[in-house]
Each structure stands twice: as C-alpha cells, then as structure tokens.
C-alpha cells in the first residue's frame, strides 16, 4: 500500500509547489525597502524647476509616491484611477517623473489631467536607483516616520487600492494620531 502511496504524496507536494509557483508573478520582486526609511531626496519640481521638493517635507504625513513617465504605457492605464483617487483626498499623491523629458511629461499631464500634488523630475535616474525602481509605474506608500510601508509594482488597480492601500492608510492615520 505504501508503495503506491509514497509516489502519490510526492506528486501531491510537487503539484502544490507548482501551483503556488504558477500563481506568482515572477516580475514582482519583493522590495528590500519595505519597512525601511524611504531614501531621502531633493529634486526640482516638474512644473516649476526653480522650486525643489524633498522627502523630509512630508514628515508627519502619510503619502503616496507614484513613479510615472510619459513613455510608460501602463502609467496611462493607471492614470484615470489615480485622478479618481486623488479626488477622494484619502491620501496625497506625489509624482516622481522617471527618466522623462519635462516637456513630454508636462504635455502628458495637460492632456490627461494631473492627480499629483506635485511631481519631481528624476532626469538622471539617481532617485530611481535609490528607490529600486525597475519598471514604471511603481507606487510607494510612506508613513509619518518616513518609512516605506507598501510598494506596488505595476499599475495600482481598484482591488489593490481598496484591499491594500486604503486599509494601511487608515491604520497609519490612526496610529499616527495616537502617537
């Protein structure tokens, strides 16, 4: 009896492993930056390059950093959702314009609308490397202490917004308020 049972058990284990492997997206590499302080930066703003914006200014607030570019097709896909979410005012969204020409980026915002409180330009992609960006769009949720709490690789979907981002934002706001 065991003679037939053992291969069956091995096969079962194999099936479970393969099923888990199939269900995972190999392009979603777990970021080592989760629960680590967000790399600091000070970059020129896209709309007014004479002004700069730094991550330190956001201390004490929960915010989203969305990496986007006008050449990025999935960003275009994600854009209407971001505009809708920005309108709800649940969490301020800041943009990181990644490896883009400012004139293209500005035209893009003009054409499709601007969900961002402001965007900064990462022309030489230094900040992209610091944040471990390897494909736009990517979205980072950063808490009051400046710690990255969640990273979405690829476009934010309604599912991720309601299941991952909103609950975390609410939880962080509650914790931050009591502290």
């Amino acid at each position: 009896m065991t003679r037939y049972l053992i291969p069956l058990v091995i096969f079962g284990v194999l099936v479970v492993f393969l099923a888990i492997g199939l269900g995972r997206d190999p392009h979603e590499v777990p970021s080592p930056l989760i629960n680590k302080p967000a790399p600091s930066f000070k970059l020129a703003q896209l709309k007014d390059p004479s002004k700069s914006f730094s991550a330190e200014e956001m201390r004490g607030r929960v915010w989203l950093l969305n990496v986007w570019a006008s050449w990025c097709i999935s960003c275009r896909d994600e854009h209407p959702l971001l505009i809708e979410y920005a309108r709800t005012g649940a969490v301020p969204i800041y943009g990181l314009n990644y490896k883009d020409r400012p004139e293209d980026a500005l035209a893009w915002l003009q054409q499709l609308g601007d969900p961002y409180v402001l965007s900064v330009s990462d022309l030489d992609c230094r900040l992209g490397i610091d944040y471990g960006v390897y494909g736009a769009p990517e979205t980072y949720l950063i808490d009051q202490q400046g710690v990255i709490r969640f990273k979405q690789i690829g476009p934010v979907t309604p599912d991720i917004w309601t299941k991952n981002i909103l609950p975390l934002v609410q939880e962080m706001n509650r914790q931050g308020g009591s502290r």
Binding site: V29, P30, S31, P32, L33, I129, D130, Y131, G132, Y134
Partner: peptide, 8 residues
C-alpha cells in the same frame, strides 16, 4: 545594489 533591489 542589494539594498535597493534585493537579493534577486
């Protein structure tokens, strides 16, 4: 690099 992109 691993600090930013992980062991991957």
């Amino acid at each position: 690099l691993t600090q930013r992109y992980g062991d991957f």
